[in-house]
Amino acid sequence: MKLKELESCLQCVEVFKSPKVKLEQYPTSPHIASRMLHTIDTRYKDLDGCMVADLGCGCGVLAVGASLLGASMCFGIDIDKDALDISYQNSCEYELKNLELIQMDVTKLPDAQWNQLFDTVIMNPPFGTKRNRGIDMLFLKTGLNMATRAVYSLHKTATREHIRKKTKEWGVNMEVISELRFDLPSSYKFHRQQSVDIEVDFIRFSFPSSHLPIKCTEKNYLLLKK
């Protein structure tokens, strides 16, 4: 599928009706989602015929796109039923037969569950700006345990060096594919403007051939409770 065709398909994906700020619910735009997925497919061949998971799938733009690009199975996982209902409608709308949805808290996956069950994990995780600091790294680590080929994720450019340090510790390769600008509704930042641009990295994480799953017990994250 050509990039233009994918982008116009994804323009019809329904998005959050009443986004929940504390879950950091904002969709990846069709423009960005189509470019991410097209790169994953054509440059790295990590979608066609693959077992794919989308962590924090929201309304499913990445999961739907991955299915359209030939993923054998795609699993969209989100904590929020309202978001999943919209994903479900989208999946029906596109008549996708290989998109499964699960309501689950990604940060509470039992240790070792789904270790290396998937080929590819894609995500636009919560950035951890809503009293949930560290959730982005927890999503990343969970994804890295699940995947055998690669994890594709979006992270604030400001955290790049931190992520580089962590991935080095974990023995995982990291490649910044591109730098994006995200136009977030102002509710996601403590700003007065209508919306605010933030710099985001689109990153591919992959494994050296000797890779073993990362121990989940090493809980080096901080989840601040309300």
Partner: peptide
């Protein structure tokens, strides 16, 4: 429901 399993647990169940 609608093919979506709800695996969420309450705080007091974990």
């Amino acid at each position: 429901n609608e093919g979506i399993p709800n695996m969420l647990l309450n705080e007091d169940e974990v």
